[in-house]
């Protein structure tokens, strides 16, 4: 067994660990940020069905603070699902017709993970019946993904308005994905059963690498780089999206006295202000500043 094969086994595990630890680290970092002020935007999908439909809220009622808060998990799941699987907002509102291309790329990525998952299951359970479905998922992923990445790159490079906002790193991100999908297509062309890919995954799982075609190794090398890079790049927007929607745009829950949110609030108004404007006392806390209604105006900074 060659050093390269062993490297690829270890690299596979390493990339998986970095991905899991990195994404978890980011999720913890996001969730431990200070409790922000309420900043919701309606419609909020966990409202009761009728209100959700026209964008209403519990604040349309009288004495709402004495009533239980609405909470429809189904509403949130449907809204999130339509966003994740159909890119609803891009379809409805994007003025550059990015939707079909972006949808293709996103489904390419979803199916890429599905393909790897099926390879893992197939390697562990050694079920031949899975190989056909694995093959279909793989090639559909690669074709959709390659089409999506390529067309998005072309769109971004040729439309002057999109081009202005597209930095080299954004092309790099698309290029990395494109390379994964293209090497996937090549490996399929060389072997439509993805036997080489299955051998690599099986070898990695059981630490018994076997020789596989170079293009398969390249395909998994690029996928590993993608996993390592993802938590530290804009690829992680799926996680940010969760926090943006659930802890900002849809977070309409008012707090009760003595609740964890209230205690957090008490802690936070005790933070030092830091701001140095003429109407601010930077060394005092937020609460102390709030209680001082009329500070001596410091000389305005010119």
């Amino acid at each position: 067994m060659s050093g390269l094969q062993w490297f690829m086994v270890l690299f596979g595990w390493f990339s998986l660990v970095v991905f899991v630890v990195g994404a978890a680290y980011k999720a913890i970092k996001f969730s431990t940020m200070p409790l922000n002020l309420r900043w919701e935007v309606y419609p909020v999908p966990h409202e009761e069905a009728e209100k959700r439909h026209y964008g209403g809220s519990y604040m349309e009622e009288m004495d709402w603070a004495k009533k239980p808060l609405p909470s429809s998990l189904a509403g949130e799941i449907v809204e999130m699902g339509s966003e994740i699987f159909f890119l609803k907002r891009v379809r409805q509102y994007n003025p550059y017709n990015l939707w079909p291309f972006s949808l293709a790329m996103h489904w390419g990525i979803y199916l890429l993970f599905g393909w790897v998952f099926l390879l893992v299951i197939g390697a562990i359970l050694k079920v031949d019946a899975l190989s056909q479905i694995t093959g279909i998922v793989g090639i559909v992923s690669f074709v959709l993904g390659a089409f999506g990445c390529l067309t998005l790159m072309i769109k971004r490079a040729t439309n002057s308005e999109l081009k202005l906002y597209t930095e080299p790193v954004e092309y790099f991100n698309l290029l990395l994905l494109l390379a994964i999908f293209v090497t996937g297509i090549i490996s399929w062309l060389m072997d439509p059963s993805f036997a080489g890919s299955r051998d690599y995954v099986g070898g990695a799982i059981f630490f018994s690498p076997t020789p596989v075609p170079s293009v398969v190794l390249l395909n998994f090398l690029l996928f590993g780089i993608f996993l390592i890079y993802m938590p530290f790049s804009k690829y992680l927007h799926y996680l940010a999206k969760y926090f943006n929607f659930h802890q900002s745009l849809w977070d309409d829950a008012f707090k009760q006295k003595g609740s964890p949110k209230d205690l957090k609030n008490i802690e936070q108004v005790g933070y030092t202000l830091h701001w140095a404007g003429p109407h601010a006392s930077p060394d005092e806390t937020w609460l102390e500043n709030a209680q001082k209604l009329l500070l001596e105006e410091k000389e305005e900074k010119k």
């Binding site: 409790l35 002020l37 004495k66 008012f254 006295k257 209230d262 709030a290």
Partner: peptide
């Protein structure tokens, strides 16, 4: 709602 704690809670 989340600026002023305690007795200023909405309920």
């Amino acid at each position: 709602d989340r600026v002023l704690p305690g007795d200023f809670a909405l309920p």
